[in-house]
Simulated assay, not measured.
Amino acid sequence: MKFSFAFAAALSLSLSAAAVAADAPLIKDRALVKTVDGRKVGFIDRVLKNAAGEPTGVQIIYSGRFVVIPATTLSAAEKGLVTSLTAKEVNKL
Rank of each mutant, 00 (worst) to 15 (best):
T72P: 07
P55C: 03
L15W: 01
A51M: 11
P55I: 00
G64Q: 07
E78D: 14
G53K: 05
A8G: 09
A9V: 15
K40S: 15
R65W: 01
A77V: 00
V82I: 10
S84T: 14
I60H: 02
T72C: 14
A22E: 04
V33E: 03
V47E: 02
G53F: 02
I44C: 02
A19N: 12
I44M: 03
A9G: 07
L48C: 09
E78T: 07
V58L: 05
G53I: 02
K79N: 07
I60V: 08
A19I: 03
A77D: 06
I44T: 01
G57M: 07
A77C: 02
A8K: 09
G57I: 06
S63C: 04
A19G: 12
R39A: 14
V90E: 04
T83F: 10
V33T: 03
V20D: 12
S84E: 14
S84F: 09
K88H: 12
R65P: 04
R46S: 06
R65N: 11
S75T: 11
A21N: 03
D45I: 01
A87F: 13
I27V: 08
G42W: 03
E78W: 00
V68N: 13
L13F: 09
F5N: 13
A71G: 07
I27Q: 02
S4I: 13
K40T: 13
L32G: 04
T73V: 07
A17C: 02
D45E: 14
V58F: 01
A76M: 05
I69D: 00
V41Y: 10
K49H: 11
K88N: 11
V20P: 02
V36K: 15
G57A: 13
F43E: 11
A76H: 01
A18G: 05
S84L: 10
K88E: 13
G57F: 07
E54W: 08
I60Y: 00
D29N: 12
A22T: 00
